[in-house]
Structures are given as C-alpha cells and as structure tokens.
Design a binder for these strands. Structure first.
Lengths: 230, 230
DNA sequence: TTTTCTATTTTTGTATACGATATATTTGTA
DNA sequence: TACAAATATATCGTATACAAAAATAGAAAA
C-alpha cells in the first residue's frame, strides 16, 4: 500500500487514548486531569497534550475551566441513553432521506459493505467488523444527499465509538445487527422512507439499551448519580 | 456587574476572529492559513493560534493536514443550505419534544424571553436582540428533556451564528420572526407537538433562504463553485 | 527543453521556559 | 477556638526555541 508513514499527529493519538480512559472508567467523573502528570505518563510534552484536551472539550468529554484545569465529564446512564437517542434520530433521518435519493451505484457499494460486515462477523474478527460496520453507516449518511448532515452524523458516530465498543462482545447482538442491516438495505432499495426510518431507529436505539445492560452487569461498582433530565 | 476580569482564553478569542474572517469572506476557500503570519497579525504567539485552528477544524471551517498546514473550508451556497436544513430539523425535533415535556416554569421563562426579543427589536438594539433570541431558542432546547440534544443544538446554533448575523439588518425579517416566536409559544402551551415542529422548522428554514438572498444581492463578486450535494 | 536529483528554505510539530492566576497553608487577630 | 488575611506553592496560559518534515529552487543530465 502507499502508506509510507501515516504520521498521526500526537494530539490525535492522545485524544483517543484519553477518550478510551474516560469510556473505560479509568478516570472518575469530575476528576481533574493533571497536565504534567499525564504528559509524563504518555511521554510527551504539555503542548500536544493541551491540544488533545481542547479537542476533548469540544466533544464534551472534559470541561476546560480557565486557570483551573481540565475536568472529566463522565457521561452517566441518563446521558448515554440521551446520546444514543440523538444518534438514533440522526441515523433515522439519514436513512429516510437516503431512501429517496440513493443511487444505484451507492446501493451496490452498500450491499458490498453489508456483506463485508457478515464476513467479518463469521471470521469473528470484531475489529474488522467495527470498521466495516462504520463504512456501512457512513455510506447511508452520504446517501442522504446532505453533505453537512453526513459529516455531523459521522462525527457523532465517532464520538459514540468508545461507548459502543463495550458491547461488541456482548451476546449475539451482532447477528441480530446483521439482520437489521439487511432490512435497512431492502427498505432503501424499495425507496421506502418510512420503513428505512423505523428499522434504522430501532437498530441504533437497541445499542443504547444494550450498553446499559452491559454496564449494569459489571457490578454497580461506580454508582452514578443520574442527574434529572427533564 | 460582577465582571472583575472575564479572562477569556486567547484561543477562544482567536477562534471567533478567524471564524468571522471566514464567514465574511476575508479569506478565500482553500487558502492556507499561515500560522506565523496570523500570529503576527493578531499579536499573539503560535501556541494559542494553533489551539484555535484545531478548534476550527472540529467545526469544519478549516481542514488540518498534518505537516502541511491549515486550509480554509469556506462553505458554499449548497453547504449553507445544508447547514440550515440540519439546524431546522434539529430545532424542530427539540420543539416537538418540548411540546410534550415543557414545564409551567419553563413556559413562563420562555414567554419572558419572547417579550425580551420584542423589546430589543423595538429598541432597534440588534445586538441585544441576538442574545435574547439565542436565549429563547436555548430554552426550547433544554425543554426537550434531552440534555445531550440540548447541548448539540446549542453548539450548532453557535456555529451557524456568523452566517446568520449577515441577515440581521435585512428587510423586516425580524418582525416576522417575532410572530413566529409567538406561534411557537402558543403551540408549546397547547402541547401541540406537530404544530410546534412545523412552525419551528419553517422559522429556521427561512433563515437559510434569506441568507442566500442576501449573498446573491451583494453582487456575485466571489463566484462560488457549488459542489454537487447529491 | 524537459526531467530528476539535491540542497536550501520555509513551515509545521514538539519541547522547554517564564509570567500570571488560582488554591492551599500558615499566621495573626478577634 | 474560629475566622480572616497574607504568603507560599502549584498549575495554567503564553511565548520562545529547537528539531523534523515538506515545499521550493537550482543544477545537472537526458
């Protein structure tokens, strides 16, 4: 391949590492992220670390208080459900739009992506599955015909990644996921906007509830406050 | 007031200034933003400037290419329409949810905000109008009962700000806007989700088309390519 | 004249250093 | 003993400095 040297910027690497730390609960909610300490641990200087923290503040995972520092904003159950609810609505909208606008060529590629997902699943290659699944969804975002929406949807998808990964190895959710992919594909081929919307909405929503199950299953170690939503 | 020293971080100030530069077309699409040159012009060092550029890359206004620099991503007409279309959908969803969940107390505050908008308009204080209008909309986001959605909506609102401001002094769009605010308020009071959705959707959509008019009116100086969306 | 390789220059990425601000501790007084 | 003020310490924000990568220009060869 023509990958002489990917050269991922340090700040981006740090972004993902800290994101994972927060998602996995290695740092508690409200905890202050010590710049110097983290810089030492990661073996980098404060400069790229600060850039990563600023990036994280953009996605709401940390709060940056001027002259005070960076504080972890660990999403509680309520917030996680809210996040997946938004993702479900956005994906459903994309699917609805795509049903009326998707091209033959895009449909062909989408079918390929769906097959690739199934292949990865049969090979039990979860890492590859995740990539292929992302491709499948991204294609639907793009088929919506609204480039800005597609970007935002992809962004949201990326931000939810750490919270979605936790459920990958959970039950046979994945085989069910495959069936849903096929259903979405059929709805888009038929140009059935309402059906595409409904199936996609359910497809995403379930991810949220599964996550909740998962979290509850691994002992209620860290009790989460659960601020009122309404 | 208790503003001893707001102490806004330099990076955030730079973010807004560059955002404005892009919105006002002071920098052309695809143009490279020279770090050292900008740092000199703004009278700051490269460090906070780089943080601002990273922030801008998060909102899609600039593209950061590793070891190459920051390049302006000037939204074309198509993209602007797409952005307002997404905003309309999001706001409409908020309104729809709010219709079923808004509390008496929130309704009271919303009425106040609407009145404050009208007062600012009558005083021809457009700056104040903008603030009050933002308050009105933010309250509806929060009334949706989904905190994450509210944050995302507020974020989007903020990102669209530079492109919305251009139309402030345009025609008597504002008095029409007031009427729509009242209609939204009525729909929420009545708990009429469908109506709240429809009115809000139109309320935002119009902003997008007005913008387009505005841009077209000020001579087609900078011809915009208009990449195909679908 | 065109092409390719190399050397120079420019610019990005990262580290370090210094000044400013907030927090913690200590001391003095009521 | 409790509370307030002042000092001390730690951390953040910004500037500067250095190293690595890419763009550019020039020279040599086809």
């Amino acid at each position: 391949m023509n990958l002489p040297a990917p050269k991922t910027p340090t700040a981006d690497v740090l972004y993902e590492r800290i994101e994972t730390m927060i998602a996995e609960g290695q740092v508690k909610d409200g905890e202050r992220l010590d710049e110097m300490r983290l810089a030492r641990d990661f073996g980098v200087s404060r400069t790229p670390l600060r850039e990563a923290l600023r990036l994280l503040s953009g996605t709401g995972l940390v709060e940056l208080i001027p002259n005070r520092g960076a504080f972890v904003r660990q999403p509680d159950f309520t917030r996680l459900v809210e996040m997946f609810e938004v993702m479900a609505e956005v994906e459903a909208w994309c699917a609805r739009l795509a049903a009326g606008r998707i091209t033959k060529a895009q449909l062909l590629l989408l079918r390929k992506a769906a097959s690739a997902c199934e292949a990865a699943l049969q090979a039990q290659d979860y890492k590859r599955y995740y990539v292929e699944n992302a491709t499948f969804h991204t294609m639907i975002y793009e088929a919506s015909g609204n480039g800005f929406l597609a970007e935002e949807a992809a962004n949201l998808h990326r931000r939810l990644k750490p919270f979605r990964q936790a459920q990958l190895s959970f039950g046979d959710r994945l085989s069910q996921s495959m069936i849903e992919h096929r259903e979405i594909l059929l709805a888009l081929e038929a140009g059935d906007a309402a059906r595409a919307d409904a199936v996609m909405r359910n497809h995403i929503r379930v991810q949220g509830s599964i996550y909740e199950e998962y979290r509850q299953s691994m002992s209620g170690e860290r009790e989460v406050a659960g601020q009122q939503a309404s």
